[in-house]
Amino acid sequence: MSIDNSTVKKVAKLARIEINEEEETTLITELNNILGWVDELKQVNTDSVEPMLSVFNESMQMREDKAESNFENSQILDNSPESNSGFFVVPKVVE
């Protein structure tokens, strides 16, 4: 599996990370090295092995379907880079 310019660009876009040309070149080498290294897992026989998503094996308990809010709207907005009249502000998204 080899990673080229277009793959790095595509992945960066999916991850919503802007990268410059220099970063792109470095990432091609680094990602190829890392993915080449993890490729050794292909040699492990995993036929009929169940994937393990978590080590946690206690049953999760259901809770009542009730909304709980312990916070004020203003507390939440205090950390936002830009807010107005109780709302988060983002660049215009409709033409």
Binding site: M1, T7, L31, L35, L41, V49, P51, M52
Partner: peptide, 25 residues
């Protein structure tokens, strides 16, 4: 970038799912 790649369409089974199975082992 690695995380996004191994979860992306076409590579999920080869990397992520494989890793989950090895984790079980």
């Amino acid at each position: 970038m690695i995380g996004t790649y191994v979860l992306s369409a076409g590579y999920y089974d080869a990397y992520y799912l494989k890793a989950l199975k090895v984790r079980k082992l």
